[in-house]
Amino acid sequence: MKKVLLAVSALALFAGPALARDQIRIVGSSTVYPFTTTVAENFGKTSGMKTPVVESTGTGGGMKLFCSGVGEDTPDMTNASRAMKKSEFEACAKNGVTEIVEIKVGFDGLTVAASKDAPDMKLTKQQLFMALAKQVPDKDGKLVDNPYKMWSDIDASLPKEKIEILGPPPTSGTRDSFMELAMEVGAGKFESLEALKKSDAKAFEAVWKSMREDGAFVEAGENDNLIVQKLQANPAALGIFGFSFLEENASSIKGLEIDGATPTFESVASGDYKMSRPLFVYVKKQHVGVVPGIAEFVAEYVSDKALGEDGYLGAKGLITLPGAEAEKTRADALAMNVLTIDGLK
């Protein structure tokens, strides 16, 4: 019984008023996680302050936590693999989070890759849509269940191989981006679907958002490393994942050319490779000065040492912003210019 008393009294002790927080807390996207953690570690090493805690909650989950209010029990920053939505901004404002600083830190390229042993393939987004969508327009523009089994059914120039594409599940931010950057654009290439978009935007959305379920598209789990391993074992398959995984595994897999551009550091940074998305970090300005170190952490994030051309984030696989844009990001971040609702979608 002594133990019980001890445990209860210990609990009562801990449950008292929360102590002032002296450690930055960051939540959000798992895509930005590898980069923010690198900055956090360097910040902890060089500033003499506590290393920030970075949680990997996903972009949506991060926004929810971030917008839950102002105070020590809410995070100071959130990572996002897409821009903040209007609805999220409004939710933030409703909970008193009115001063948000947006930092665009760089890009992430989405790649369609195959084993090094596979033959070279050049794809267009339209072909990707034809390979992956549940319903595609036939010759007359009528929607039919996806009839394509082989790549050569889609286009004679493509190899006579079964279509097999491994990709992330719907809960993943990578999947969201792939749908928007490849499937939506690819669908728009069909005249009939373009017309549908104008007449019935909801129906158009349903077309590009539905992946086929007959085995040609395989949901391979959130872990990009797993997709890489499966590609190595199966040269006939293609995989969809982030650029940094392609770069790390360049010895065994290669990125396919999409719409005439192969994914390389340069082509993504210059915008020639179109399947890329911007990455963001959002800062709660109201916490600056309350939780120590936020301003210094932001300064570290946008410093030349981190985000510069030879910075350590580039070495970690982040595709950094080109010169002028980087300067603007840096100036905005250091001045802590707050986000306004105009321009948000």
Partner: peptide
Amino acid sequence: VAFIVDVPKGFTEAATVLPVQIFLWSDLP
């Protein structure tokens, strides 16, 4: 499930556990 560099020294400090560490490392490029 978080990136935590500092070794925790008390019950209220941020910490992670072994299986979570495995999960986090498995997802890095």
